[in-house]
């Protein structure tokens, strides 16, 4: 049973996407990488379910 929500779930997709891009504005590659890593870890904690993370990783790997 898939647990990962792969249906459309973000209201205002353009706004949210813009937030992500804006957050990286003016950062060096190293700073951006660090920000992404902190973001991923924070979201992983929010999700809190290893199975969902595993499914998301599999999806992202393609």
């Amino acid at each position: 049973m898939a647990k990962l929500n792969t249906t459309r779930n973000v209201a205002g997709a353009d706004d949210v996407y813009q937030m992500l891009i804006d957050a990286h504005e003016g950062l060096s590659k190293a700073e951006s990488d660090a920000l992404n890593a902190r973001l991923i870890l924070t979201l992983i904690n929010h999700i809190g379910d290893g199975e969902v993370i595993a499914e998301a990783l599999a999806l992202a790997k393609g």
Binding site: D33, A34, A37, R38, I40, L41, T42, N45
Partner: peptide, 16 residues
């Protein structure tokens, strides 16, 4: 990068 991110977050945030 992930290791350092964990350490950075851990200072302020218990969840990390």
């Amino acid at each position: 990068i992930f290791r350092d991110a964990v350490l950075d977050l851990a200072e302020k945030h218990d969840f990390a």
